[in-house]
Amino acid sequence: MHPYRSILFVPGHRPAWAQKAIAAGADCIVLDLEDSVPAAEKADARDTVAELIGTIRSDHPNIGLFVRVNPLATRLTGSDLEAVVVPGLDGIFAPKIETEIDVVRYDALLDHFEMRNGVDGLEYIVPIETVKAIWNCREIAAASPRVGAMIGPTAEHADIAREVGFEWTPEGEESLYLRSRVLLACRESGLHALTALWEDLENLDGLRAFATHGRGLGFRGMIAIHPKHVATINDVFSPSARDIEFYQGMVDAYEKAAAEGVGALRYRGLHIDKAHYDKAVGWLQRAEIITSKGA
C-alpha cells in the first residue's frame, strides 16, 4: 500500500465536502457510507459515492480513494460493494473486522464484485475497533494479501474507548499497549501502520504532539477527521530535507566503506554497520515513494 500520511473521512452523502478534503491536501480520502450517513440516506449515498469515485479519479489521479462500507453484521455490506466497486477505487475501509474469518468474508464479496465490475487490485484499510480485534490483530494482518494497512486505536469517544473503558489522555499512555500490538502485527506482515485519532478540532499544537509521538512509536500515517488537521499530519509524517540528507549520507558512507572492505565505520560521530545501512535504505525508499506521488 502507498504510505499515505493523511487519510481524511468524507460523508458519502455530502459530495461537496470531498472537494474540501482534496483542497486540504489529504493523501487519501475515505468516502463514508457507515457512521456519518443517516440510515434513510444510505441507499442514495451509494450512488453518490460511485459517481464521486469516477469524478475524483479523473481530476486527481494520484489521490488515494477508499470507501468505508457498512459492517458485515448490518447485512448492508454486499449492497455497498455492489455499488462502489468501480474503476478508480483503490480499496475498502473495512469496519468491525474482529477475526481472520471476517477478512475472508470480505474477500469473497470483493472477489465477486471486482470480477463483475471490471476492477482489480483493491486493498483494505482495517481499523482495529474492538477488544476481540485487538487480540486477533496478528491473524487479521496476515489473513489476506488485500490487507494493506491497519489502524492502532486511540479515539477518546469511539468504539475502542467504550469497549476497553480507558480514560483518554493527550499523551496516549492508556492506548499504548493496544496500538503497540497493532504496530507489531503491521511490521510482521509488511502493512502500512496508521495511528488515530485526534478529536480536538481547534488544538493543532496538541495534534502535532500526538502525531509526532505516533511517528516516534513507528506509525507512518494518521487518520484525520477534519480538513484543518491535514497540513499538520502531512508535515509530521513527511521526510524532511535534513533527514533525507542524513540518511543519504549514511548510505553513501557505508557503500564507500564496504567497497573498500570495511563493514563498520564512524559516520557523523555514530558507529554504523550494515544494520544502520539497511534502515537508511528502507527509510529513503519510503521517502521516495511519498515524494514521487506528488505529496
Rank of each mutant, 00 (worst) to 15 (best):
Trp198Thr: 00
Ala155Lys: 00
Ala193Ile: 05
Ile63Met: 02
Ala133Ser: 13
Ala73Phe: 12
Phe246Met: 03
Glu202Ser: 09
Asp32Tyr: 12
Trp198Gln: 01
Arg242Ile: 07
Gly282Cys: 07
Arg75Cys: 05
Gly221Thr: 06
Gly249Trp: 14
Leu52Lys: 08
Pro11Glu: 14
Leu8Met: 10
Lys42Asp: 05
Gly54Val: 10
Ser58Glu: 15
Gln285Ile: 06
Val85Tyr: 06
His229Cys: 02
Arg242Thr: 12
Ile53Asn: 13
Gly91Pro: 11
Leu194Lys: 04
Val10Gly: 09
Glu199Thr: 08
Leu81Trp: 08
Gly88Phe: 14
Lys274Ala: 05
Ala209Met: 11
Val251Asp: 11
Glu245Asp: 14
Leu33Lys: 06
Gly148Asp: 06
Arg57Glu: 14
Ile7Asn: 04
Val104Thr: 10
Gly206Met: 05
Val119Glu: 14
Leu109His: 03
Arg116Gln: 15
Ser6Ile: 00
Ile272Cys: 08
Asp107Cys: 08
Val37Gln: 13
Ala39Met: 11
Thr169Asn: 02
His213Cys: 00
Arg146Leu: 07
Ala258Ile: 05
Phe210His: 15
Leu183Tyr: 04
Ala94Tyr: 00
Ser6Asp: 07
Gln19Ala: 13
Gly249Met: 07
Asp111Asn: 15
Ala50Tyr: 07
Leu204Cys: 08
Pro127Ser: 09
His276Asp: 13
Leu191Val: 01
Glu123Gly: 05
Leu178Lys: 00
Arg14Thr: 11
Phe166Trp: 01
Val67Tyr: 14
Leu33Phe: 09
Leu122Ser: 13
Lys279Ala: 04
Leu201Ser: 05
Leu176Thr: 03
Gly282Asn: 15
His192Val: 15
Val236Leu: 09
Val84Arg: 08
Asp278Thr: 14
Ser36Val: 06
